[in-house]
Design a protein around this nucleic acid. Structure first.
Lengths: 227, 227
DNA sequence: ACTCATTACTGAGTATAGTCCGAAATGTAG
DNA sequence: CTACATTTCGGACTATACTCAGTAATGAGT
């Protein structure tokens, strides 16, 4: 690393780095390696079957270092899965606002919104349940748990938007809080049914039927209140 | 001190159990000691802060013996909490069928049914969330987890009964499955909101307001479908 | 009562998530 | 460069849920 020539003119250390210091870059690179290692191993063997040692090894960092980037094994899972969640949430929102979907009835619109989430959830069986568990029951103060909660809140907001749009605005101020409430109920049902289905290996068709029925129920209740 | 009666141990099919051999009695006595020890320690320090060693010590059995009576620390919690759940579910059912409550509107009736569960849940803060977590995400094959699921199913049945009674029987066979579905939605919401409230230490009034509103929503949706 | 098969108990042992403090690397000033 | 400050790293260490192979207790057959 270091040139030990004795003929003077060593380059000043701090001038070369235009963007960030070595430290910053090292951290970023390690963060990326840890993320990749965790993502690969979880996908390959499932959350429970992977040890933090394995992740550290594949990321080529010491065991202790791992916990400087994610304070907990569960946080590693949240870190990895949040990315998918965010991506699928974005896809869902885009699909909902597509021209043909934008005019549809509220229940199909909600289903359009959550379909990417469900599909991804059903694909990675074992990890989805663990992810849901950590979202619901993890330490609220941890970083990636907090991020996950933000995503859940965004999902609820999107659902509330669909519901509110479906009800001819009656101009009452309660309308907003009602849609928020209904969205929360839908979100509750979605999370629990998704977790249950992946754990019990419910066939997708059955799962979808039950989920749809419950969403219809809640939507009906919401719309009925508007009169 | 908690429950002293060990209503657990469903006695092997061998019917003459009351005065069976020493072995059987020894097991029962140990089971009772373990139950009591776990109940006391969980109540006193909270699930997470108690080690299986402590439980074994207080129950005066070896560490390994503990796991012959409950295959997991989580199973110990389920074992203990199931008793309370069952007791409170019974109280709720009794209250609902009391003369004055029997004629009330469905939402108040449902609230009457679940109030004992909620009150108990709010009392033992930390353990309630852990209990809900294990009910939803525990190994489905474990004994006390299975018992808990039966209780949840009974709760849903009770809710479905209230709902069905509130809708003037339209004689269609779909009525039953509708009420089951709505009951499931209510149960989903109840479990998640209860867990969330205990974790976030939401004040009881706020929690009750939100829970009630969601139950009203679902009930309205259920009744609206009957037309 | 003696033998033997079966069941229950035990506690040292194992695996692994998470901690801690000294070491190393990086940046800063004279 | 040398000295010092601050941040990051590392891996031996700890705590604890759970296991397992050996041991003891029980009860049935004779």
């Amino acid at each position: 690393m270091r040139s030990d020539r004795h003929t003077v003119v060593p380059a000043p250390p701090n001038a070369a780095n235009n963007s960030t210091g070595r430290r910053e870059r090292n951290k970023e690179v390690k963060q990326a390696r840890i993320f990749a290692a965790a993502a690969e191993l979880f996908a390959e063997h499932g959350y429970a079957a992977v040890t933090t040692q394995q992740i550290a090894e594949r990321a080529d960092v010491a065991n202790g270092t791992l916990f400087r980037y994610a304070s907990t094994k569960a946080e590693l899972l949240l870190m990895v899965c949040n990315d998918d969640f965010r991506r699928n949430l974005d896809r869902g929102r885009r699909n909902v606002s597509a021209p043909d979907a934008a005019a549809a009835a509220p229940v199909p619109r909600i289903l359009t919104l959550v379909t990417p989430l469900i599909v991804a959830g059903r694909r990675s069986d074992a990890n989805t349940a663990a992810y849901q568990r950590e979202i619901m029951f993890g330490e609220p103060t941890e970083r990636y748990r907090a991020e996950a909660l933000v995503l859940v809140a965004e999902l609820q907001l999107a659902i509330a938007g669909i519901l509110a749009a479906a009800r001819p605005s009656t101009s009452t101020s309660t309308s907003t809080s009602d849609s928020t409430l209904a969205a929360r109920a839908v979100s509750n049902v979605l999370h629990l049914e998704l977790a249950r289905a992946t754990l019990a290996e419910t066939p997708p068709t059955v799962f979808l039927t039950e989920l749809t029925a419950q969403i219809e129920l809640i939507t009906r209740g919401y719309l009925a209140a508007g009169q």
